[in-house]
Amino acid sequence: MAINVSIPTILRTHTGGQKSVEANGSTVAEIINDLDSRHSGLKDRLVKEGNLHRFVNVYVNDEDVRFVGGLDATVSDGDSVTILPAVAGGMR
């Protein structure tokens, strides 16, 4: 089961510049572990002490995983995962 994962500019050093990569897994944690097995160092950038890095947001189909189980959030075939750094909002 392949899930498409979108990688932000700042983390593309780990993916050889690729904007999106494929990964396998049924939870966000499994996806990250699978990514790390091929794109070494990625997990360290995303996960701190068992939780998502404070300035990293992960979305499954546009929904923030922190509200649907965090690293245990489930991912199914055909879902898309997006990783983004936290930034200040726009026209505030």
């Binding site: 700042i10 950038r45 300035f55 923030d64 983004l84 909002g89 726009g90």
Partner: peptide, 20 residues
Amino acid sequence: EPRYGELVYGLRNLDEGFVP
């Protein structure tokens, strides 16, 4: 939350990230 183009997320490092 708005999702912008890549330019807006072009931080130099992750620790420049920001949560109000």
